[in-house]
Amino acid sequence: MKQGQYGIGRIGIYYLIGLFSLAAFGLLLVAAGSATADGYELPPREDAPETPITDLPVVATGQGARMHLQAHFSQNWPWESMHWQEDLWLKVQWLDEDGVWQDVAGWQGSLDAIQQKEDWVGMKEFWFADAQLGTGPYRWQMFAVDDGRLLNTSDPFYLPTKSGDLMALDLMLQP
């Protein structure tokens, strides 16, 4: 086939395909650039607390600290009917100035990992900013997902006062 016999040769077709692809890519970039977070609103969260944790704004000025929650499973834990990751839910709460425990948004969920030490221990770790150092009191609770039954509640505690610290809190779980 000669170039020009049917109007556009093979090289011309590849050129047009490339040109159209480049134009489509450019349009996608323009559309993606105009789709900023300013134009979108997130759906409301059902688990967000109605009152803030503190009146002070939380600003991460340093490295923060970590809270390591450790759930110790009893010897008679029903592993066949209560899976450590699917059937358990934990949350951290703080005590407000009226003496009411409030859920801390973002400090809840299923366990991250499990390992065997002297017993089986499920773990969950949370990070918090330096602005939250030394605040409290807090507590954490573990629930059975299927019926919402409270399995156990920790003693009240305060967050560490030093940036970079790791705080470990233990809780025994009975079925």
Rank of each mutant, 00 (worst) to 15 (best):
M1S: 14
K2G: 13
Q5V: 15
R10E: 15
F20N: 07
F20V: 15
A23P: 00
A23K: 05
L27H: 05
L27T: 04
L28A: 13
L28Q: 03
L28E: 11
G33F: 05
L42A: 04
P43C: 01
D47E: 12
A48Q: 05
P49V: 12
L56S: 11
V58N: 10
V58P: 03
A60P: 05
T61A: 14
A65I: 02
A71R: 07
H72P: 00
F73W: 05
F73E: 03
Q75M: 10
W77T: 07
P78M: 11
E80P: 00
L88T: 02
W89E: 11
L90H: 04
L90F: 00
D98L: 01
Q102S: 04
V104D: 13
G106Y: 10
W107Y: 02
G109V: 03
S110M: 05
L111D: 06
I114G: 07
Q116E: 15
Q116G: 08
E118C: 05
A129G: 08
A129D: 15
D130R: 07
A131I: 14
L133F: 07
L133R: 01
T135E: 13
P137S: 02
P137A: 11
R139D: 06
Q141M: 11
F143G: 02
N152V: 04
L159V: 14
S163E: 08
S163R: 00
D165P: 00
M172A: 12
